[in-house]
Nucleic acid binder design. Structure first.
Length: 258
DNA sequence: ATGACTTGCGCGGCAAGA
């Protein structure tokens, strides 16, 4: 089973690239973040025409997540743990796979900048909720994939210029500690399970020719439960999409599970 | 040293992103 994740930075602006990607890479499951639209504005008809089912958790203007799959599936919306949180940042699917299932969580973790504001405390609180929920999901002992834009640079090797990120919400020690805490529950970072190479990035800023200089960061991740990690066959970062006209600032990351 | 793009909203320049 092929599972991909991509922060599209507006699904309406990226519809053409998305449809091309679905046709060329043929993921069984596609996780999308930063839709920047409400459910009614999501291009469901065009995606369904390619044989996908869509589950959308949109929001006006910002945020918004979706899961697409080439078969029917069950879906739940929202990250448990705070009924007052109105931001659309989590959607989960149970994907049938022969006699078994794969549970896929699609997440858009808050950016958290500027540090020292309520934005950063919201990020840390959201990570605490994710850790608590992930702990409960692991008890199910299923194939589980938590995929998305984590807005976390896990280590210095995951940034072209780590010094520039020292005081940023994506790289602060408290941020990385929570990401480590999540991993230590028993998750495997799919990319790092397959490669210890540096200069592997999933985001390049639009400004100052960052992509041309490969001045990027790795912040889009697929975390695997033990049962999913045992099935990991391959991982890829689809960097070529960043060189297209009108790209997202993120590129897709995908895995193949046997 | 600073800003450097892109998007949504909605029609004037901001907020937000990372």
């Amino acid at each position: 089973m092929r599972i991909a994740t991509w922060n599209v930075n507006s699904v309406r602006q990226r519809e053409g690239h998305l449809l091309s990607y679905l046709q060329s890479e043929k993921p069984d499951v596609m996780c999308l973040q930063e839709l920047k639209c409400v459910d009614e504005q999501f291009p469901s008809a065009e995606i369904e025409a390619l044989g996908y089912n869509c589950a959308v958790h949109g929001q006006k203007g910002f945020n918004g997540v979706a899961i697409l799959a080439n078969r029917p599936f069950e879906v739940t919306r929202g990250l448990p743990g705070d009924d007052t949180d109105t931001q659309s940042r989590y959607i989960e699917a149970i994907i049938p796979d022969g006699q078994t299932i794969v549970r896929v969580g699609c997440l858009y973790l808050p950016n958290g900048n500027p540090v020292g504001t309520e934005k950063y405390s919201y990020k840390l609180a959201w990570m605490d909720r994710l850790i608590a929920y992930a702990r409960s999901l692991l008890l199910l002992e299923e194939k589980l994939v938590l995929a998305g834009d984590y807005n976390v640079i896990p280590a210095a090797a995951d940034a072209f210029d780590p010094k520039a990120w020292e005081n940023d919400a994506l790289f602060l020690p408290q941020t990385r500690a929570r990401f480590a805490e999540l991993l230590h529950l028993g998750f495997t970072d799919a990319l790092r399970a397959c490669s210890d190479a540096d200069k592997l990035y999933t985001f390049w800023d639009y400004q100052a020719g960052a992509f041309q200089r490969n001045n990027g960061i790795r912040i889009d991740h697929l975390l695997l439960s033990p049962q999913a990690a045992d099935c990991l066959e391959a991982v890829a970062i689809d960097k070529s999409l960043r060189a297209l006209e009108k790209p997202s600032d993120h590129v897709p990351v995908r895995i193949d599970l046997r």
